Amino acid sequence: MIQAFVYPVSAVMKFWHWLLASTMHVDSSHAWVASVILLVVTIRALITPLIWVVYKSGRVLVVMRPKLAAIEERYATDTTPEGVLAHQEERRKVHKEHSYNPFAGCVPGLLQVPFFLGLYRLLLWMAVPDRAQGHSLGLLTAHETQSFQSATFFGVPLTAYLAMPVDQLAQLGTTRPALEDVALPLIVAATFFTTLNTVLSQLRSRSTLEWDNGLSRRMYKLFWLFVPFVPLTILIAGFTGVVPVALLLYWFTGNLWTLGQTILLWWLVVRAFPLDDATVAHIATSRTKAIEQGRAAREVKRSRRRRRASVLIHPTSFFRVRRELLEEKREAKQAKIDARAEKRELARQRAVARREGLKQAREKRAEEKDQME
């Protein structure tokens, strides 16, 4: 599957090298370096409309939330066929009013992945001599691949990488100090921009975060835990992995593009879909409620820790405190079980009501059709 996307990606790279080297008479080595950069820019530019759809979908969902929340509150416990169908119809009306498609935010993200993997795979194959020697890659011929492997960036071969043994570097006509002068700035820049992009992505997620949803809040907090590992992973890969200069150029260019794209599209989507007072109030209320729930949960934990610590001062209270804590945990666990069971039962009743409502609607349409005939 991924190999299929190597062909369109290689076609773009072949075009840029042909345009620069054959038409504009740029040195072949410089043309290959420019082709790597222009390849990333071209693919990312073609995918930008898909990114915009994701941004727009997320922002529109935020704008709709006060209306959707009001609908959910109105029909939350309604298990009649009429109520369930009315619930769905009102949600559809809100979606239609804002031209919102629930799948619009998911599909574009999935479509981007093969292109990114195809781009990365092509550059990796071309830059590692053992994988591309004497072979065509996509639409690139074996001769073009060999020409790419002979190209240099500031005098350093595009196929050289920091973990490469000294004797292999000598065979490529370079030295470790010369390679470090080129590779280290690229690794540092790629690390910086990737980390900055990750932070900006988290901040953008916070601006569209569904504070009423506990899972969304937990996922948001969890991703912050992974942020420190982003620069660490890139540094380890750059210093110890098979990451040639060509791939470092790809990392640097791609993350620089992502930074500019994030800032621009974020600014555009905020201007295109401003938040009204109702939405701002809904977000503030939801956030305040989530913060208060978090504080209450932390206070419960602190209370339990204090009572456990009090046993050190009053050892005779050990069994009493232990019974109290166990009882509280059992009650809390049972409350969660009851709440989940109630939620499942409500969902079941609403599903039955929905089927009944659809059945009644079909029967009504059939009767109306018969009367017309």
Rank of each mutant, 00 (worst) to 15 (best):
M1R: 08
M1N: 12
I2G: 04
F15A: 12
W18P: 05
A21H: 14
H25F: 09
V26N: 01
H30K: 08
W32P: 05
V33I: 11
V33Y: 00
A34C: 06
S35I: 03
S35F: 03
I37L: 15
L38C: 07
L39P: 03
V40N: 11
W52L: 09
V53M: 08
G58S: 11
M64W: 00
R65F: 01
L68Y: 00
A69S: 10
E73H: 14
E73V: 07
A76D: 15
A76C: 09
D78H: 08
D78E: 14
D78A: 10
H87E: 14
Q88T: 00
V94S: 05
E97R: 07
Y100K: 09
N101A: 09
F103P: 09
F103E: 07
Q112F: 05
V113P: 05
P114T: 01
F115Y: 01
F115D: 04
L117V: 03
G118M: 06
G118L: 00
L122K: 03
V128R: 03
Q133L: 10
Q133K: 13
H135G: 04
L140V: 01
E144S: 06
T145N: 15
Q146Y: 06
Q146S: 13
S147E: 15
S147M: 09
F154T: 04
G155D: 11
V156L: 02
M164K: 08
P165G: 10
P165Q: 15
L169D: 03
A170W: 01
L172R: 05
G173F: 04
V182T: 00
A183S: 12
L186E: 04
A190W: 03
F192H: 12
T195H: 10
T198S: 14
V199D: 10
L200A: 15
R206A: 15
L209V: 13
G214F: 14
L222P: 03
F223M: 12
W224Q: 11
L225H: 07
P231Q: 04
F239P: 04
V245M: 05
L247P: 02
W251H: 06
F252W: 11
F252V: 15
T253K: 02
G254Y: 01
W257Q: 10
T258L: 15
L259F: 12
I263G: 05
I263T: 04
I263P: 01
W266S: 14
W266P: 00
V270Y: 07
D276Q: 05
A278I: 06
A278N: 13
T279Y: 03
V280C: 08
I283W: 01
S286W: 02
K289Y: 10
A297R: 13
A297Y: 01
K301D: 11
R302T: 05
R304C: 07
R305A: 15
R306T: 09
R308S: 07
A309R: 06
V311Y: 00
L312V: 08
H314F: 14
F318I: 02
F319C: 07
R320H: 10
V321M: 02
R322M: 08
R322G: 06
E324D: 15
E324H: 07
E328N: 02
K329Q: 07
A332Q: 08
K333R: 11
K336M: 11
I337N: 04
R340V: 13
K343I: 06
E345D: 14
R348V: 07
V352P: 04
K359C: 08
E368D: 08
D370F: 07
E373T: 12
